Computed example of a mutant assay.
Amino acid sequence: MSSTAASMSLSRSRLVFWYATFAAISIGANLGSQSLAFHLYRGPFAIPLSVCVGTGVGLVVKYLLDKAWIFRYEHQSVAHGVRTFSLYVVMGLGTTILFWSVEFIANALFHGEAGRLAGGAVGLVIGYFTKYQLDKRFTFA
C-alpha cells in the first residue's frame, strides 16, 4: 500500500491527532535524552553533544512511529529498509538545521537549560510540520 493510500485510510483529523501525538512523544524522547546527556556530561561541548544525542534518539523514535502508524509502510527487504531510513534522515537534515537554529538562538537569548529546551521544542514543532510534507511526498511515497 502506498503511503498516500495508507495516510488516507486515516481521517484527516485522526491523522493530525496521531501525528501530533507521535511528534510529542518524539519531542519528549529528544529533549529528555538531551537533558540526561547534559546532566551526565558537563565538559567541553556538553550542549552540542547533548543536542546530537537528543536528535539521534528523537529521529529513531519518530521514524519507527511514522513508518508503522502514520504511513503504514512496510519494507520489502533489509536493503529497502536501509534506503528508506537513509532517505528519512536526508529529508530531516533541513528540518534538523531549523530545529537546532531555534534551540541555539533560544540558548543564546535565555542562557539556561529551560530556555534552550523550550526553543528546541518550538523548533521541533516547526520542523515536524515541514517533515511530514517531505516524508509524504518523498520518503514513504
Rank of each mutant, 00 (worst) to 15 (best):
G32V: 04
F138P: 00
V90D: 12
W18Q: 07
L31Q: 09
Q133F: 15
S11T: 10
V61G: 05
D135Y: 07
H111K: 13
Y63D: 05
V60G: 06
M8T: 15
L98N: 06
A106Q: 05
A114P: 00
I25P: 02
L134P: 04
T139F: 13
A5G: 11
S101G: 12
A118M: 11
A106F: 03
G56S: 10
W100T: 00
E74K: 14
G127Y: 11
N30F: 03
V57K: 06
G81R: 05
Q76E: 10
M1I: 14
M8E: 15
I105N: 04
A23P: 07
T21D: 04
L40V: 12
R42H: 15
Y63Q: 06
T84G: 05
V122M: 02
S35Q: 15
H111G: 08
A106Y: 01
V122T: 09
A24D: 02
F85E: 02
S50M: 02
L117M: 10
C52W: 02
V90Y: 10
T96F: 01
C52Q: 07
V57E: 10
R137W: 11
I70F: 07
Y132T: 04
T96A: 11
S9Y: 04
A106D: 00
I70E: 03
W18T: 08
H111P: 03
A23E: 03
F85R: 09
Y88D: 01
L65W: 06
F99N: 00
V60E: 08
A24S: 11
G119C: 09
I25S: 00
S13I: 14
L49R: 03
A37K: 06
G56R: 11
R14E: 14
V102M: 02
L65E: 04
G120K: 03
Y128S: 07
I47T: 13
F17T: 02
L10M: 13
Y73G: 01
G81T: 13
V125A: 13
G56A: 15
K67P: 00
